[in-house]
Design a binder for these strands. Structure first.
Lengths: 166, 166
DNA sequence: CTCAGTGCAAACCGTTTGCAGAACG
DNA sequence: CGTTCTGCAAACGGTTTGCACTGAG
């Protein structure tokens, strides 16, 4: 069926993409898309499954994975791996479609920022190294403001100055 | 036993680290370390296991994983995830201990380059956002020179201009 | 009716862990 | 000699896949 009533404009965009490539626009696909587009965060599959449930739907994990794959292929959604052992998903339709990430090593929070500098880096590697950039990822790991204010300090592990061979 | 004969200077540095934290310097640990330090590439665990075999040793995967964990903790080795479904390891004792990566979407090759610009970005997020950077990762995905010369072009998939709601 | 989508459960695969036996110090 | 490591194999956990069933047109 898919009444399209209540689905976000972004989800309609996704529906357009599906029709474009000849795939059915199903209720499950619209629900998953809605959940992703309604959130401004970086969602894990579990987050998505939970929110789907909260909305009264019951969609299998396999379908969620398959739908996320379609969303990523449509380029409406980006897949991230912050080294947690699972992926996170974020739609690209916010005010800042291309942005970088600040990941707190203490609390795991993820903040976003824009870095025009990186585009300079991209044109430099193209000019100097002949590498043709398509997309990039800049993740900065460290301590967020809140954790610093809470007095957290990171204990440096490992060799202090590894760059010297005795 | 561990004769230390033939082990690279970097491996001796690793041995020093192990003793520092009160852990035994075993033959297996030295062999794994040697393999990693002898390579300038980005090695998968399979790569390492294969090279260990090629050197006539037979070390279980579990031990390789456990040793890599120690190497990473010592900060002599860095762990990377280029989205291939497994990790890669690279020692930090080359001429350019901190560098970024260019990953070819066609052939999967990984090249390195230095980006002083990123340090400017780090101090900017610190000054403007109060985020205290510890380390970063800048990966640029695209087409390497060789693949471009071979005539490869990436077929853009998905919606051309997703940033507009119908 | 037909065909793709869905859900379940099993498979997958890189990585981790438990444990008996071997090695280090 | 006690402690830690090693190797094997089983466990783990996120993700993918096979397949019978359901639903849309």
């Amino acid at each position: 069926m898919s009444s399209d009533i209540g689905v976000s404009p972004y989800t309609r965009l996704f529906g357009r993409y599906l029709r474009e490539i000849g795939l059915p626009v199903t209720q499950q696909r619209e629900t998953v898309a809605d959940v992703v587009f309604d959130s401004e965060g970086h969602l894990s599959v579990d987050d998505i499954e939970q929110e789907v449930r909260a909305r009264g739907a019951r969609i299998g994990k396999a379908t969620i994975y398959r739908t996320l794959d379609l969303l990523v292929r449509s380029r409406l959604v980006e897949e991230h791996d912050f080294g947690e052992g699972f992926k996170r998903y974020e739609h690209r339709l916010s005010r800042h479609p291309v942005h970088e990430h600040l990941i707190c090593l203490e609390c795991g929070s993820v903040a976003e920022f824009e870095s025009p500098e990186v585009f300079g880096v991209e044109s430099r590697v193209k000019a100097e190294l002949g590498f043709q950039p398509v997309r990039h990822r800049l993740d900065i790991y460290g301590l967020c403001k809140a954790c610093q204010d809470a007095g957290v300090t990171l204990t440096p592990e490992g060799l202090i100055c590894p760059i010297e061979t005795v």
